[in-house]
Simulated scan of single mutants.
Amino acid sequence: MSELADALIVIDMQKALQYSYNFDGLIHSINNRISLYRQANLPIIFIQHNDQDIVRGSELWQLSGKLDKQKEDIVVEEFHPNAFYQTNLNKVLMNHNIHTIELCGAQTEYCCNATIVMAHGLGYKILMEHDMTTTFDNDYMIAEDTISFFEDIWNQRFVTFQ
């Protein structure tokens, strides 16, 4: 059984990304982590992206209905790949006395990477399970290779994998 952080942060698991690599499998894995955090009475924070492509209030902006999101969970809306940039995320974490976070979600090379690097810079200890982010194939790499590439960069530099 892997260690739990002080809070679980679920990044951008929205309908706009439902066709990314292994999206439904990732939701299943995230829901398993959510269950462990609920049992431990630890906070679960959902990050919800909003920009010109994913417009607030639209169908694609909605969090996936398959996620185990409850009304007591915290939602932070972001407008930039870095979930800390011009949001209240750091204040929420400080108000809950959170020092370690577990991150998962979408997209590996955008919002996940930017948020991981910033969280590390702010002094948070970041825990992750392998294969807990998703993305799309791009002109250079298939999604699985992008995920492996970023996990290799994060490993022991920014993130402790469990």
Rank of each mutant, 00 (worst) to 15 (best):
L63T: 04
W61G: 01
R38F: 00
L36E: 09
S20V: 12
V55K: 15
N41W: 05
H49K: 08
S29A: 15
N32I: 00
A16P: 03
K69C: 03
A16M: 07
A40W: 04
R38L: 01
F23V: 13
S64E: 06
I44D: 01
L63G: 04
Q39A: 15
D53P: 02
Q18E: 14
Y21N: 11
P43D: 09
N31T: 10
E72A: 13
S35A: 15
L17F: 14
I47S: 01
G65L: 08
Y21L: 08
R56A: 08
A16Q: 14
I30P: 02
Q52R: 12
I30L: 03
A40Y: 07
L36Q: 13
Q18N: 12
S35L: 09
R33L: 12
K71V: 11
R56E: 14
F23W: 06
I45T: 02
H28K: 15
I30N: 02
L67W: 00
S58L: 10
H49W: 01
K69D: 04
I44Y: 01
H49P: 04
I30M: 04
D51V: 06
H49I: 00
H28G: 09
W61E: 02
K15P: 00
K15I: 11
N41H: 14
K71L: 11
I27H: 01
H28M: 07
R33G: 02
Q48Y: 03
I54E: 08
Y19K: 14
F23K: 05
N22Y: 04
D51W: 02
Y19G: 12
I44L: 03
P43I: 11
Y19D: 15
Y19N: 15
L42V: 00
D51F: 04
I54N: 11
Q14P: 05
L60A: 10
L67S: 09
Q18M: 11
G25S: 06
Y37H: 02
E59H: 11
N41P: 02
I30A: 02
Y37F: 04
I45Q: 00
N32D: 15
L17E: 03
V55Q: 12
L36M: 11
S29R: 15
F46N: 03
L42E: 06
Q39M: 12
Q70N: 12
E59S: 14
I30S: 02
R33F: 01
S35C: 10
R38Q: 09
F23S: 06
K15N: 15
R38D: 08
N50A: 08
S20Q: 09
K66T: 03
L63V: 06
R38N: 07
N22T: 15
R33H: 02
A40R: 09
K71Q: 12
L17Q: 08
Q39I: 12
Q14E: 13
L42Q: 08
D68P: 06
Q48I: 04
A16I: 04
L17A: 09
N32K: 14
P43Y: 10
I45G: 03
